[in-house]
Amino acid sequence: MQDNALELFEVFIRSKRGLDHKHVGSLHSEDHEQALEYARDVYTRRSEGVSIWVVRSADICASQEDDAEDFFDPNDDKPYRHATYYTLPDAVNNM
């Protein structure tokens, strides 16, 4: 059987000016231009967005959930990076 599947694209939508583009899902498309139009038709039928980004799924390089422990571990033992680590007297605590 011939594989006719088109390439997968990830879709990101900015719901409102000033906000980040947020991942909403994916779709198959023959190229970027078409992906944009498909994304408009599929993901913004109710004015969900003012701007769309499409990225070839194959171009996304992601960290591995399985390795998360080793990957993020060095940052977990540094409580002093958080403001709440420093107990200041009530008089000046709104810092």
């Binding site: 002093y80 680590y85 810092m95």
Partner: peptide
């Protein structure tokens, strides 16, 4: 936010 607090500390 922690920068200022560590300084005051």
């Amino acid at each position: 936010s922690f920068h200022q607090r560590q300084g005051y500390d």
